[in-house]
Design a protein around this nucleic acid. Structure first.
Lengths: 358, 358
DNA sequence: TTGTATGCGTTATCAA
DNA sequence: TTGATAACGCATACAA
């Protein structure tokens, strides 16, 4: 059937296969495989209507030419960008970096690119939402801990691509994965109550830049709920709020200690806050947990090192879940956005126990 | 000159400006501004040969149509991808996340995208270098702590784009930014020597996956150099190596403590190793620094919290420097790759001091 | 099953 | 200074 003589081109073996590797085009592959560019395109993407024989010829030729599809051309032709943007407030924070790391493999396994944007301060953030560099550039967005206001939310909506948020309030039309912060906080405080504590303080935190995080609100709610349910007196003077981070935790603990009524146990909104609190206690010469029990929230990498009792949340999984929800919405554009709540878990270590005087 | 009647289209005011926002094309803008698409392209990119008047008309029209350039089309036409890839072994590790965060703003300010790849284990890594998803996809690559072997290095070379590495050995033709690990280690050990220590141990680490990191080698070299120079006996049994991380540091310290000759001070290759070592000391009931002094390396976020003496290195700056070198090489393709060495600095905190018995 | 022809939205070359 | 016009490399509707 197939003539063994080649009408136009030189024999395959004579082609300068190694010249400017990576710059071969689909037409080059087509010539070498003796098919049309259209068939190359189909063969390369596994279209069913291609003979096993020609597919092999095409793959062979592509291999020999070190051919790689031009994403730009492909994107222009299809209209799809093959790209997911991930928005994160501060990458060096363990939580965010871990969520991103959790999302990466799912995105890459699907053959998509991961575009990273760290919006670390108010100025950067404002510029980002004003210029919206994602326009025409991404097929979907994952937003971590961004707690966007009306304007920002609207700006993202205008991209007309699916959005998945992690650890935020639920936005209509967007996918969301989070934990139950109220319930998680309740677990922590119940643990303290069951150890016999009656004076239980809390250190929550706020964004120095004024973003309306929902997490502190929910965790405070869980704290108060349990106190009320357990019949433990809720004392406003045992509740402190400080800027997010270790420093804030440290100073808030100092204030707690200098207050009229020293707590025997403190629930810290996050492990980082707890780290700072622990340092203050150590410097104050107080024994943990004999004098003061401390429990955090997150199960930070370092929590184990410091023997900190805490509430563990699945961090990496939140990233993975968000990515997979988003990917699903790309293949099924009319899928209804889901809101997933992942479980938390009490981790008892050495910073919680009964008070020395009972 | 310009006829005020519009031959084809309706008057600007009547156009459905809000319809499918973001989907306007350059031709739409051209029509609205009554110029050719070519002029729109020139005006939008600040080409000097455009009248101030027409430029304003174009920008106006673009604004009203919510126009955004299609990156795919632009890339196809120019051949430039407008994208930098960042390769990182493990994103949740503070050091890597911080370097990436340092590189981000420079990249984004230049109008480029940041494509993130976490190559977290050997299997992922092998697949990455085998398939090379970066082909035709990026204008440059930043590789952090990858310590690539021959094959991997060659694979990156074949991309024919500039490469900047951070914290690695210097590769011919590639840009590099790093610190002087030998010198940094020397600073740490000199600090211990000057405190009067004579039995100084070291805990270095190795990659569980067998990558040939240069850092441990250099830091060990600095350690030995100072011992020799100071006339302190170098005792091989005081040198331990453990898998990277807190766990490894903890077990290595346990081995040091159970050896024939207990050290009075230990230089840990990294802060994370030191964290583990500190925990072991605490659990062993040993006082720091009275019984054993500990110094780390990196000035990790948590080092301050734990009062760990250490050698600080500019982490964020390494990311920024790498990005800016790479950007320079994009605008000046024939620039000679530079190798930058950033300074380290001794940070004295509370884990180093004189030995109790002198 | 495969090939032809066209469009995707820019940029760049060349004329005007 | 501006406007036609031709790439850029691929995907797909339509034909064969």
């Amino acid at each position: 059937m197939e003539p063994t003589v080649d009408p136009g081109q030189a024999a395959p073996g004579e082609r300068p296969v190694t010249a400017t590797p990576g710059s071969a085009t689909m037409a080059d592959v087509a010539k070498l495989a003796r098919v049309s560019p259209a068939t190359v395109s189909r063969a390369l993407r596994g279209h069913p209507s291609v003979t096993e024989d020609t597919r092999r010829r095409v793959l062979d030729a592509a291999e020999r030419l070190h051919y790689a599809v031009s994403p730009a051309a492909s994107r222009l032709a299809t209209g799809r960008t093959g790209t997911i943007a991930v928005l994160v407030p501060r990458l060096p924070q363990w939580f965010y970096a871990t969520v991103v790391a959790g999302a990466g493999p799912s995105i890459h396994d699907a053959g998509l690119d991961l575009l990273l944007y760290e919006l670390s301060d108010a100025a950067v953030r404002r510029r980002f939402f004003a210029r919206m560099p994602l326009r025409r550039r991404v097929d979907g967005v994952i937003a971590l801990g961004m707690y966007m206001d009306e304007v920002e939310t609207e700006a993202l909506h205008r991209l007309h691509v699916p959005v998945a948020t992690v650890g935020e309030r639920e936005v209509a039309g967007w996918w969301n994965v989070r934990i139950d912060d109220v319930d998680g906080a309740a677990k922590a405080v119940r643990h303290l109550v069951r150890l016999g504590h009656q004076r239980i303080g809390m250190i929550s935190s706020f964004s120095p830049e004024g973003y309306a995080f929902r997490t502190p609100i929910d965790r405070r709610a869980g704290y108060r709920q349990v106190l009320t349910a357990a019949g433990v007196r809720y004392a406003p003077e045992l509740e402190f709020s400080a800027p997010f981070g270790m420093e804030g935790g440290g100073t808030a603990m100092a204030e707690l200690l200098s207050g009229p009524e020293q707590p025997t146990a403190v629930f810290c909104e996050s492990d980082e806050v707890a780290f700072g609190a622990l340092r203050t206690l150590r410097r104050a010469g107080l024994r943990v947990p004999l004098d003061v029990s401390v429990i955090g929230f997150d199960d930070h990498d370092m929590a184990d090192l410091l023997d900190l009792s805490t509430i563990a949340q699945p961090v990496r999984e939140q990233g993975r879940t968000a990515a997979e929800m988003l990917l699903r919405s790309l293949t099924t554009p009319d899928a209804k956005p889901e809101h997933v709540v992942l479980p938390t878990r009490l981790v008892v270590r050495a910073t919680t126990g009964r008070h020395a005087t009972g």
